[in-house]
């Protein structure tokens, strides 16, 4: 049991670690808020980024000659830092001002060139609105 079992486990740990390490190194993106992105805008080695932000006015959406969605995002928790975004693709469902989005892409010339844009969609895991009292405490 011991030798075969341990050999197999060690083999898989090594193979798994190599696969995971190589894939991580080749595909990871820096996660930034719009304000953090602006602070690092002049960094020459800015890698691929993922920005989580809240959509602000105005939104421009053209469908000819290509689908092009132009808008800006700010930090979801507020602040003045606003970063423009260009996304060549379909306007996602639920996309509108005030909605939180995840943007994957590159930061080029002060604009996020988005390769992927996802609107945070509602889920059954959303929090409740604060300010309520339990049934036991009465209305």
């Amino acid at each position: 049991m011991g030798r075969v079992f341990i050999s197999l486990v060690v083999f898989f740990i090594v193979v798994g670690a190599v696969l995971v390490f190589q894939a991580t190194r080749g595909t990871s993106s820096l996660v930034l808020m719009p304000s953090e992105l602006i602070a690092r805008a002049h960094a020459s080695d800015l890698p691929r980024i993922r920005v989580g932000g809240r959509v602000v006015d105005p939104i421009q959406y053209q469908t000819e000659p290509v689908f092009l969605l132009s808008f800006s995002v700010r930090d979801p928790k507020g602040g003045d830092a606003v970063v423009p975004v260009e996304y060549r693709g379909l306007r996602p469902d639920m996309f509108q001002v005030g909605r939180d989005v995840l943007i994957d892409g590159d930061f080029v010339g002060g604009v996020i060139k988005a390769a992927k844009l996802q609107t945070q969609c509602p889920s059954k895991y959303e929090p409740a609105v604060p300010g309520a009292t339990s049934a036991a405490e009465g209305s």
Binding site: V20, A23, T24, L30
Partner: peptide, 24 residues
């Protein structure tokens, strides 16, 4: 969990997406 690990160990949050999962 990579965003959590990377932030804990390097101070900089990073993430991986579909290409990572497909490649592995």
């Amino acid at each position: 969990m990579f965003p959590v690990f990377s932030e804990a160990f390097t101070g900089q949050k990073q993430t991986v997406g579909i290409p990572f999962f497909n490649r592995v």
